[in-house]
Design a protein around this nucleic acid. Structure first.
Lengths: 156, 156
DNA sequence: AATGAAAACCCCTCTTT
DNA sequence: AAAGAGGGGTTTTCATT
């Protein structure tokens, strides 16, 4: 069941300690967390369950390292649409392109802003030409990431 | 030990099935995966271990949902530097700003491109004014995400 | 909300093919 | 590369405060 309400969950210091450990490694055992934060394993378990039910902690996932399977190029692409009304249609097309891993409807220069993973620059060129053929797309602007110097989650 | 070589790991269909299950939920048990893909738990275990050692599967982490703790605004900011040589210094400063969750050194219009999470627009304004005071930063351009329509990992 | 104890489940190793 | 069996650890529930 998806939690949809908009109330802000108040984290106490123990919650934060627990969450940061899970954000670092979701397989941290209850026994290990328990030792670090100084409460029983059952108490840790209860807090995690509560945080999960509230939707504060989302499902844990494993990461596939794109580089290891030959995807070396990270880029961001701003997309200009002739009419914002084409947004839904374009997003639908974008969902069918596996290389697109994020898409945002944005304020500012672009209508749509996406993150794309490619094997190399040739591959990126193919994706760009595919994007430019989509109905409603007038122009794109590409930023290739030469180095990702920060990649982390929010700490509060 | 970090795997640093650049060979491309060849995934067979079983590897892919297993990886996609773990990318969806890193806590999928070996017994469950075993049932889905039709090989023994031991075989699944051996494959996962191999994929982890090769660095194809990276550590699993839990996600904190920023919205649930009051962070409602997702934005991307392009940063112009007067000299690229200020890059390292600026990144160092950016690392001290918790709201910055990604930073890239990019080709194209901007020198640095970042992703920022904020509570609201006022909060974003504060971050922007903080960024504009950093030495070497001449100008910034902001894209606020009104809706994230795609958020996923790479599928190959 | 927190605790200890017990049950159920799971990971991981070992042995074998 | 894959399978079954067993020991040790982990999650989960239960009763209690």
């Amino acid at each position: 069941m998806k939690n949809t309400n908009n109330t802000v969950y108040q984290l106490d210091p123990l919650d934060k300690e627990i969450i940061y450990m899970l954000m670092d490694n979701s397989k941290s055992s209850l026994a290990y967390i328990s030792k670090q934060v100084g409460i029983s394993t059952t108490a840790v378990h209860q807090r995690i369950k509560k945080l999960e039910q509230a939707g504060v902690i989302e499902n844990s996932i494993s990461f596939l390292n794109p580089r290891k399977i030959g995807y070396k190029v990270v880029s961001y692409i701003g997309i200009f649409l002739d009419q914002p009304s084409h947004y839904n249609e374009v997003v639908k097309s974008l969902k069918e392109v596996n290389e697109v891993v994020e898409a945002h409807y944005t304020t500012g220069n672009y209508t749509i802003f996406i993150k794309v993973l490619c094997k190399d620059n040739d591959h990126l060129m193919q994706i760009l030409s595919k994007l430019q053929k989509l109905k409603g797309v007038t122009r794109t602007e590409t930023f290739i990431s030469l180095e990702q110097s920060i990649s982390r989650q929010l700490k509060v």
